[in-house]
């Protein structure tokens, strides 16, 4: 694993490696001195072309707990806003001596461009690219689910996967990098995934994904769900006719108080409620659901630091250095 660009090309072994390492990292977070010397002398750049305070501070905390030097490079108020290209920015970071670049970008595929070109020879971590992927979010979600699933089974988390777990992901799948990363990773880890959304917010081509698709949240809950993940829905989408109004969206696809009660009615006492944040309370999730005992929303945030520590640690201290499968891309797409 040279880079962490997506969960689609993440092997089960690498995924479990990250999750198991994250368990060890989580121990560090419990200590009075929350710091390891593992990445002393290494430089990690947080390269953010899109505002995301939560993800940036999570990566920053992760890198600092591993004693790395952290540089935050925000596209706003920098040379990027003056028209500097991604290539020039990358070459600048290479010249500064960045060992790892954590990149958040509004353009799908930007992290892969950094990884595939000769602009910079650093480890690339995708911190969310456009509507493509957000692999560390999916890893922290899986980490949170795995702890829950292992606890129910009465075992420790390390080494286990999500076999048999039923996960529903509801919301704006079309524009969601979180949904994409979760679909691939949860499948790799043995869970079954159901996407729940209005048909307008599902991509053409979703039928080829390794998951179920539902337009009916109530029916999905009735069939049984072990983890219910709500995705953020932007109210502006209704202006583009993805749905008629925020209220109609909320009634049909929001996790409201009635659906919270429905979990009890269906006997789903152990079902957890997840959200990657930031939440629109009252739109895709009610306050009662977000603040209920079922909610793992804050656990997700703290687990995010552990997972990102694990990813940085494994990428920067080597682990294994097997090249991922990008070389065949040169011939793929050329029919004989």
């Amino acid at each position: 694993m040279k880079h962490l660009l997506s969960t689609q090309d993440l092997s089960r072994k690498d995924a479990l490696d990250i999750l198991d390492t994250a368990e060890e990292m989580a121990q560090v977070g419990q200590r009075e001195v929350k710091k390891l010397p593992a990445l002393r002398g290494r430089t990690v750049v947080n390269l953010f072309f899109e505002d995301s305070t939560r993800t940036r501070i999570s990566f920053e905390a992760a890198a600092k707990r591993l004693s790395a030097d952290v540089i935050n490079f925000s596209a706003k108020g920098s040379s990027v806003s003056k028209g500097e290209s991604l290539k020039d920015t990358a070459q600048t970071l290479a010249a500064i001596g960045a060992d790892a670049v954590v990149i958040r970008h509004w353009a799908s595929g930007a992290p892969q461009r950094l990884a595939n070109t000769d602009w910079i020879d650093a480890r690339i971590l995708n911190a969310g690219d456009g509507t493509h992927e957000h692999p560390t979010q999916a890893l922290l979600d899986a980490f949170t689910m795995r702890r829950h699933w292992a606890k129910l089974a009465g075992t420790g988390s390390a080494g286990t996967d999500l076999s048999g777990m039923r996960v529903a992901i509801a919301g704006d799948v079309l524009h969601s990098r979180v949904a994409r990363s979760n679909v691939w990773l949860l499948r790799t880890l043995g869970a079954t995934v159901t996407l729940v959304a209005p048909p307008t917010l599902l991509p053409v081509g979703v039928d080829a994904w390794p998951c179920e698709v539902s337009y009916d949240l109530d029916a999905t809950l009735e069939q049984g769900v072990d983890a219910m993940m709500m995705l953020r829905v932007q109210k502006e989408r209704m202006n583009a006719s993805f749905f008629p109004s925020a209220r109609e969206y909320s009634r049909r696809w929001g996790f409201d108080d009635a659906r919270l009660e429905a979990l009890d009615r269906h006997g789903l006492k152990d079902t957890i409620i997840m959200h990657p944040g930031p939440m629109n309370r009252g739109l895709e999730i009610s306050s009662a659901a977000a603040d209920s005992a079922r909610s793992t929303i804050l656990d997700q945030v703290s687990n995010g630091v552990s997972v990102r520590m694990a990813a940085l640690y494994l990428l920067l201290t080597g682990g294994r250095d097997d090249e991922t499968s990008t070389s065949h891309a040169a011939t793929e797409g050329i029919p004989a």
Binding site: S108, R177, P203, V204
Partner: peptide
């Protein structure tokens, strides 16, 4: 629109050109 709308655009998260 960024690419053909279909299975590949769905995975890549690029806006589709149907």
């Amino acid at each position: 629109a960024q690419m053909n709308e279909g299975d590949v655009s769905a995975v890549l998260g690029l806006a589709g050109w149907p």
